[in-house]
Nucleic acid binder design. Sequence first.
DNA 1: GTCCAGGTCGCGC
DNA 2: GCGCGACATGGA
Length: 295
Amino acid sequence: MHTISIPIPTEPFDFRATVTDHGWYLLAPWRWRPDDATLERVERLPSGRVVLLHIWQDGETLKLGCAESLDAAEWDYAQTSIRRSLRIDQDFAPFYQMAQNAADQALWQVVKHGRGRLMRTPTLFEDVIKMICTTNITWSQTEQMSARICENLGSPYPADPTRKAFPMPHQVAEASEETFTDKVRLGYRNASVQHLGREIVTGNYNLEELNQSPLRGEALRKELQKLKGVGPYAAASVAGLLGDYTYLPVDSAFREHVRNKYFDGDKTVPDAKMMSIYEGWAEWKQLAYWFDRDR
DNA sequence: GTCCAGGTCGCGC
DNA sequence: GCGCGACATGGA
């Protein structure tokens, strides 16, 4: 195995929590090995070459390993992909500071050893598609849909062709309607996912550009809601993946948590009242909610 | 069979 | 702006 080291952030950092605190690690092409706390991912490099990446923590550094021999540009691409996924370059100090200074110390007690850095994927494209696949569906179906997207649209890993990479936009765009209907089976989400792939391929929409966008808050959410299949819940969630936690993803899980924890299970409480629970967390509301469920 | 899941969209008002 | 039904899929 060839490896390189990735310095970990100076703030508290918890690799295992970073991987497992968000459900994305359960979705193909990620694979998590709990026994040795190693994350795997089949990745398609820009050249079209498909490799298997391994990520684990070794003391004060993260290790990125690859069974295949990579050249400098390939290592660079692999490292960039993993840095985005693990949010290595995002600054969580303000969040920790706010939690530490809060009158209620409960959240700080949950996150103080380095939690909060919820895992995403190498591309916004993959994150948005997966988010669309969490809407109006159960989590187990989200897992199955992610698996079918890779299996039927992604490029195979030569050393183990049963494992596939997440498809590139052109692979999504070029798949036939029959492939989606008969194999990928995302239900009515088929149209949204294929539309996203096509808009990117034609250049009508430069999605990854949003990774560097200064847009925040309402402006960012409005931009994300322009995407087909992305409404208030998905836009708030994707904004969180982009590092903007201003908006709460109000869905059935949010309502159930807030209702049970703060309103004695009362099903008549309006959304606005539920959302007000996290009002004090300003631009960190979504993280405050996420870890509020974890006490 | 029926309901509904980490919703979104298009319609009519 | 708000309420309402349709929507693919598959598990409970």
